[in-house]
């Protein structure tokens, strides 16, 4: 049991997300499996595609996650509408990231709506989080 918790702590730190966010991702994973029986775990390269590709956003204009966050997650971004600086998304550059499920769920919902004009699926959300964690 002791070794298990040490291993769990170790893997958590490797994953660059807090235990509650890891727990949230486990729930997303379960939902993804229910929605798609061939789902076989989250994938950072799918997440990268979701994050960097351009779509017709909520305003009917081309929009990507990178429109505000830039392609380098370790850098600060800028809100494309207001110009306000956005702190880096990368948990390595910004330890505040991926520490609160409430924050993560809020921004995933909002930003999928802004860029994709729909809410992301559980798999898409998990893929994006996996991509962010690795950057």
């Amino acid at each position: 049991m002791k070794y298990l918790s040490i291993a769990l702590l170790f893997s958590t730190s490797l994953m660059a997300a807090s235990p509650e966010v890891v727990q949230y991702m486990n729930e997303l994973s379960k939902t993804a499996k229910v929605q798609n029986s061939s789902f076989n775990g989250f994938d950072a390269s799918r997440g990268k595609e979701i994050f960097t590709s351009t779509h017709t956003g909520k305003q009917g204009k081309p929009m990507a996650c990178t429109s505000c966050h830039t392609t380098n997650l370790a850098n600060s971004g800028k809100n494309s509408l207001t110009g306000k600086v956005i702190d880096p998304l990368s948990p390595r550059a910004n330890p505040q990231r991926l520490t609160s499920t409430k924050e993560v769920a809020k921004w995933l919902k909002r930003n999928f709506m802004d860029v994709y004009a729909r809410e992301g699926t559980a798999q898409e959300k998990g893929d994006v989080l996996t991509y962010i964690m690795k950057n």
């Binding site: 909520k58 305003q59 509408l81 409430k102 809020k106 919902k109 909002r110 930003n111 709506m113 802004d114």
Partner: peptide
């Protein structure tokens, strides 16, 4: 707030 000047700013 879900369409706040063109952006989704919804809150719990």
């Amino acid at each position: 707030l879900d369409n706040h000047f063109g952006t989704d700013a919804s809150l719990d």
